[in-house]
């Protein structure tokens, strides 16, 4: 028996909008720790890891570890029927091949049940080792989204370089090239407007902008984004999901042959 009640149901709506472009089908795993997902895009270039900790739910009942295969486009269709202020409850019985999404309006005058078929998905979990990153950049998520969008009108790849000067996003294409430098800036009115650069050593990596742009679908979840870089490692682009967890996007770098 599984029953997860999320008062801030809009978070789940935003989570689905954030990952459905990157991943088609995925297993949602429920355990005592929380509600999680790990999945790769169809090209195995990017990986998304979601965790919503059990403490973040108003009610969290998960009698045994359960893995539920879902088509994310279909989940998104279901969740789009929930109001932004609705309380969302996920329910599944042991051995059932369906999951039920229950939507309650804030004043309890409307209650809806949407039952969705589950699917069998073969997926292997990858071990993501703890890594020391050469540089960690925390910046406003809207700023990062703007940079990725702007650069993708010029080129296909972005070089992200962190030095003492700041973080530089560069691209080149047929019509020309572009460089955007963001310097550390902590003298802002609100902490979420700050750009904070922690650098152990300079790092420069090349990534496909198509994936970066896909990651920025998570922007509505959080005012800030954290970009962790190490040479020879996938970049981690992390958005916090309120105080209950995170979405982490891992993207393998491009290398010169």
């Amino acid at each position: 028996m599984l029953e997860l009640r999320l008062v801030q149901g809009s978070l789940l709506k935003k989570v689905l909008e954030a990952i459905k472009e990157l991943v088609t089908d995925a297993n949602f795993d429920c355990s005592a720790t929380g509600f999680s997902l790990q999945a790769m895009d169809s090209s195995h270039v990017a990986l998304v890891a979601l965790l919503l900790r059990s403490e973040g739910f108003e009610h969290y009942r998960c009698d045994r570890n359960l893995s539920m295969g879902m088509n994310l486009n279909n989940v998104s269709k279901m969740l789009r029927c929930a109001g932004n202020d609705d309380i969302i409850t996920l329910k599944a019985d042991d051995g059932s091949d369906t999951v039920t999404f229950m939507f309650e309006s804030p004043n309890q005058d409307k209650i809806a049940d949407f039952e969705m078929k589950l699917m069998d998905i073969d997926s292997e979990h990858l071990g993501i080792p703890e890594a020391e990153y050469h540089a960690i950049v925390k910046m406003p998520s809207a700023e990062f989204a703007r940079i990725c969008k702007d650069l993708s009108s010029i080129g296909d790849t972005v070089v992200i370089s962190v030095t003492k000067e700041g973080v530089k996003f560069s691209t080149r294409g047929d019509i020309g090239n572009a460089n955007i430098v963001c310097r550390q800036n902590t003298t802002v009115d609100k902490p979420e407007e700050a750009t904070i650069i922690e650098m152990q050593e300079p790092v420069s990596l090349t990534f496909a902008l198509r994936y970066m742009n896909s990651f920025t679908k998570a922007t509505p979840l959080s005012n800030t984004v954290t970009i962790s870089l190490s040479s020879e490692l996938p970049v981690v682009v992390e958005y916090k999901v309120a105080d209950m967890g995170y979405i982490r996007f891992y993207l393998a770098p491009k290398i010169e042959d």
Partner: peptide
């Protein structure tokens, strides 16, 4: 042109 690597090159199956 730079070559795209895959995630499994960095993370092994559990």
């Amino acid at each position: 042109k730079p070559r795209q690597q895959v995630i499994s090159r960095f993370f092994a199956p559990k």
